[in-house]
Computed example of a mutant assay.
Amino acid sequence: MAERVAGPEIEKLIQLLARLPGLGPRSARRAALHLIRKREELLAPLSDAMRVARERIVTCTACGNIDTADPCTICRDPRRDPSVVVVVETVADLWALERAGVVRGHYHVLGGTLSPLDGIGPDDLNLSGFAERIVAESVKEVILAVNATVDGQTTAHYVTDLVSHLDLLVTRLAHGVPVGGELDYLDEGTLAAALRARTAF
């Protein structure tokens, strides 16, 4: 068994950092050492920012986004079109669409996807009251911006069924060749989806 080379406080910091996505034990050790070396310029401000985040960040009860206000900044923005709701799996997906600057409607964050193998059912997602929200806000189009995975598509079908009795348009993101993509590097599923979704040139 390897000997402990740091005190319990540093070990605890490393263990917590190792829980973050994309950080394994080695990366966590490097990050911890860097933070400790730059205590005043990094560790102290990071600690303060995390405390503020813990105290002030809330989940928007309307859409599921995270913000320091409820409803969130996006839901309160009068320039947005409330008749369009984009359904996404996670807040990270919402942020990606916002960075692209292509959505002028509202969002609905599911908090994951249906996954029977992992025991994740409809009650585990942010779906309670979804159909009622669509009616209350006079939504005309629901855009399904979920991942092109088996679980993502299962979730898309479930969401479609929830609003199938309503008079609205349900669309999904196109799947296929990415901008700047080369055919030789794409998998067969992506190529097949691109061919099925071809448009006039």
Rank of each mutant, 00 (worst) to 15 (best):
Gly7Tyr: 05
Glu11Leu: 11
Leu13His: 07
Ile14Glu: 00
Gln15Pro: 01
Leu17Ala: 06
Leu17Lys: 05
Ala18Lys: 04
Arg19Pro: 12
Pro21Arg: 02
Pro21Gly: 09
Pro21Lys: 09
Gly22His: 11
Arg26Cys: 11
Arg29His: 09
Arg30Tyr: 09
Leu35Gln: 02
Ile36Gly: 00
Lys38His: 15
Glu40Asp: 15
Leu42Gln: 13
Ala44Pro: 00
Leu46Glu: 12
Leu46Thr: 04
Ser47Ile: 02
Asp48Tyr: 03
Ala53Asp: 10
Ile57Gly: 02
Thr59Met: 13
Thr61Pro: 10
Thr61Cys: 12
Thr61Ala: 14
Gly64Val: 04
Ile66Leu: 15
Asp67Cys: 09
Thr68Glu: 15
Thr68Met: 10
Ala69Gly: 11
Thr73Tyr: 12
Arg76Asn: 09
Asp77Ile: 10
Pro78Glu: 12
Pro82Ala: 12
Val84Ser: 07
Val85Ile: 15
Val86Glu: 12
Ala92Thr: 11
Asp93Arg: 06
Leu94Pro: 04
Leu94Ile: 01
Trp95His: 14
Ala96Glu: 06
Gly101Cys: 08
Gly101Phe: 10
Val102Thr: 15
Gly105Ile: 01
Tyr107Ile: 00
Tyr107Phe: 12
Val109Cys: 07
Val109Lys: 01
Gly112Cys: 09
Thr113Arg: 12
Leu114Trp: 06
Ser115Phe: 08
Pro116Leu: 00
Pro116Cys: 07
Leu117Thr: 05
Gly119Lys: 10
Gly119Met: 07
Pro122Ala: 05
Asp123Gln: 14
Asp124Leu: 09
Leu125Asn: 06
Leu127Arg: 05
Ser128Leu: 11
Ser128Ala: 14
Glu132Thr: 09
Glu132Val: 06
Ile134Arg: 00
Val135Ile: 11
Val142Met: 00
Leu144Asp: 09
Ala145Lys: 01
Ala145Asn: 06
Ala145His: 07
Gly152Gln: 08
Gln153Leu: 11
His157Ala: 11
His157Glu: 13
Thr160Asp: 07
Asp161Ala: 13
Leu162Asp: 04
Ser164Gln: 11
Ser164Asn: 09
His165Pro: 01
Val170Asp: 06
Gly176Met: 08
Val179Ile: 15
Gly180Ala: 07
Gly181His: 08
Gly181Val: 03
Gly181Tyr: 01
Leu183Cys: 01
Asp184Lys: 13
Asp184Tyr: 08
Gly189Ile: 11
Leu191Trp: 07
Arg196Cys: 00
Arg198Lys: 13
